[in-house]
Every structure is written in structure tokens, then in C-alpha cells.
Simulated assay, not measured.
Amino acid sequence: MSAPIAALFASGTGGLPPAEPVDFATLRLPASPNTCLAAPPGGHPQAHVTVPPFEVAPDAAWAALLATCDAQPRAFRYGQWPERRQAQWVARSPLMNWPDIVAAEIVPAPGGCGLFLFSRSLFGYSDLGANRKRVEAWLAALGAALRR
């Protein structure tokens, strides 16, 4: 059984190959409608969602990002690269246990920081909007955490 297929029958991050960081500067989205990319203004030409800058220090946003994303339902930390302020999670669907990968990176910006948030399906062509809904929910949760 290949690692991706094994991921269907596992829990948490089980069955997946080791996580690797995402290079948002060179990221090219697939033609399939099973991804959602949120980026700072002008941060990526294929972004589906624009994230206004956060008026907090990058390190404060990084700490809030980790706490917020770790608290999301059925989300499991998959990898992290603190020197880049990037982390990844496996988010599993509630009914079928499908694993999606969510990558987030805090980047410095004038007056604070920006955020890349990329959710993608590992299986199938369409996700029926699940990745976009996840990105919007995680952005709302992070925004609320940063306002506290």
C-alpha cells in the first residue's frame, strides 16, 4: 500500500510521507478545484483569498497561529519550520477521514506581518468547497485570537 493510500486508513498524520515546507514564491496551484490559497495583498498571483496585514509582530502572530491551528477540530500538526515561521497540519474530514494538508506561513510586512494559508486535498478532483471553508474558518479563528 503506497503512503498516500495508507493515509486513508490511518488517523492523525499516519500514513503520510514526512512533511516538507512549501515555497510560496514558486507555488503553482493545480487546475483542479480542490485547493484554496489565502495570501497577503499581492503575495501570490493565484490567491483565492486576500488576507489583510496583521498589525502585530511576526513572532506574536506565529505563536497565535500555532495555538489557533492546533485547536482546530480534527487537525494534527504535521511539520513545522520555526526559522521560516511555517507549519503544516493534516486536517481530516469528519465522515470519511480524508486527509487534507494545510500549510501556513507568517511573513514580515510593513507595520506587522502577512499570512499565507494553503489548504489542499490529497485525494480527488473536487472538494465541494471544503478547503475554502476551512481557510475561511481558520482565518476567522486566527483573527479573533489576534484581537484578544
Rank of each mutant, 00 (worst) to 15 (best):
R132N: 01
L66C: 14
L122Y: 06
A67Y: 00
L66M: 13
L95W: 15
S126N: 07
L37M: 08
M1Q: 11
C36T: 11
A6L: 13
P17N: 13
L8I: 04
C69N: 11
S119K: 06
I5G: 00
G129E: 12
S93H: 09
A144V: 04
W81P: 05
E136Q: 15
A47D: 05
V22N: 05
T35K: 09
A38H: 07
G143V: 01
P110M: 10
C36L: 03
S119N: 02
L142F: 09
L139F: 09
D127H: 04
G111C: 05
A3S: 13
G111D: 04
L117A: 05
A57N: 10
W81S: 05
G112S: 02
R148S: 14
N97V: 09
T13G: 12
R92Y: 06
W81I: 01
L27Q: 02
Q46V: 07
D100S: 11
I5T: 10
A109I: 01
C36Q: 03
A6E: 14
L117M: 14
R92Q: 12
I5M: 13
Q46G: 13
D23K: 07
P18L: 08
N34T: 10
W89F: 07
V107Q: 04
A103Y: 07
W98F: 15
A104D: 04
F9N: 08
L142K: 02
F116Q: 03
A67Q: 11
G43L: 03
V51F: 01
N34H: 14
H44Q: 08
A31L: 08
G143Y: 05
A103K: 00
L95C: 03
A130S: 15
E55T: 14
A67D: 10
T26Y: 09
P30K: 07
L117R: 05
T26F: 06
G15Q: 02
A31W: 05
I101E: 14
A140K: 13
A31I: 00
R148Q: 15
R147G: 00
R134D: 03
R84I: 10
A31Y: 00
P52E: 07
V90H: 07
G114Y: 03
A137W: 03
S93P: 08
R28E: 13
Q88I: 04
L37V: 09
D23F: 13
G124R: 01
P45M: 00
R85L: 04
G124Q: 06
A91S: 13
A64P: 10
I101S: 02
S126A: 12
F116E: 04
G129M: 10
N97C: 02
R132L: 10
V51L: 03
A39W: 08
F54T: 08
R148P: 00
P33I: 08
T35A: 05
L139R: 14
G124Y: 07
A109Q: 15
P17L: 15
A61H: 07
P45D: 03
T68W: 10
P40C: 03
L27T: 02
V51R: 12
R148F: 01
P4Q: 10
W81F: 13
S119I: 01
G15V: 01
V22Q: 09
P82C: 13
H48W: 02
T13S: 12
W81V: 03
P33L: 09
V90I: 15
M96N: 10
L142C: 07
W98P: 00
